[in-house]
């Protein structure tokens, strides 16, 4: 559980990306998904990431969530250069600091909603009783009370998306990375989820980075970062 700690004399951003480049493929068929991203995110911020399809939003989120490694550039989390961390430490970041909602939900098939939500707690070694209670609570929060025993195959896309959200928030992470968390939800349900996220951000101080296509949803965030073609085109903080 111990992380190498860096003294925080000067106030450093929680997340700091410098010259982040990601190239897919090799030889002639290379594809530059990120072409030098510079972004700083402070603790407690609620950031929306927008941009056209294929502009590199998911790629960037995966790197932020330590699911992928950049081709070049530096990523500092709490002042630590993630690029220098070993696999084990990167796993610890995911386990204890990050929550991740995937664009494609990525639930375990043939596994009940409850067990899916329990999974991150199992890896956090929570005792089984507390684990089950927390998982039930998280499912209730996303409006899936009574659906605990259903497997992903028995749930609609929107319901699966909410299970994925429950799985990401059940650990009350330091940072929540959400890749289009409302992409499959109707506007009423979307608003509920956004209220939930805003609440987490405000009350629990959870830093949230959220990809979205909808301006309505982005409006919930205090800051909107626009991606175009692998570069940040605009970065606006609206004083609401």
């Amino acid at each position: 559980m111990t992380m190498p700690v860096v003294s925080e004399k000067e106030r450093k951003p929680l997340i700091s990306l410098k010259g982040m480049i990601k190239v897919y493929g090799a030889g002639q068929a290379t594809m530059q998904a990120l072409r030098g991203i510079n972004v700083d995110i402070d603790e407690g911020e609620f950031v929306a990431v927008m941009g056209p399809s294929g502009s590199g939003k998911s790629t960037c989120m995966n790197i932020l969530g330590c699911l992928d490694t950049p081709t070049s550039g530096s990523y500092c989390f709490k002042g630590l250069n993630v690029g220098n961390l070993s696999r084990v430490y990167r796993t610890r970041l995911r386990r204890f600091y990050f929550g991740f909602v995937f664009q494609g939900y990525d639930l375990l098939s043939r596994t009940t909603a409850l067990e899916n939500v329990e999974l991150p707690l199992i890896y956090r070694k929570e005792p089984s009783k507390a684990r089950r209670a927390k998982a039930r609570k998280a499912l209730e929060i996303v409006g899936l009370k009574g659906w605990e025993k259903h497997t992903p195959g028995e749930l609609s896309g929107g319901q699966q998306q909410r299970v994925a959200i429950a799985r990401a928030i059940v650990t009350e992470p330091t940072v929540l990375f959400a890749d289009e968390p409302t992409g499959n939800l109707d506007s009423a349900r979307s608003r509920e989820i956004m209220d939930l996220l805003t609440g987490l951000n405000r009350d629990k101080g959870v830093t949230i980075v959220m990809v979205t296509h909808e301006t309505d949803m982005a409006a919930y965030a205090k800051r909107v970062v626009h991606f175009v073609d692998g570069l940040v085109s605009s970065d606006e903080t609206c004083g609401r």
Binding site: R87, R94, F96, S109, Y123
Partner: peptide, 19 residues
């Protein structure tokens, strides 16, 4: 394939390789 995806999910959620 299914197992690989599943392992991916577990790793993403915070499982050690060893676990």
């Amino acid at each position: 394939t299914e197992r690989t995806r599943e392992i991916g999910i577990r790793l993403a959620i915070g499982a050690y390789e060893l676990e």
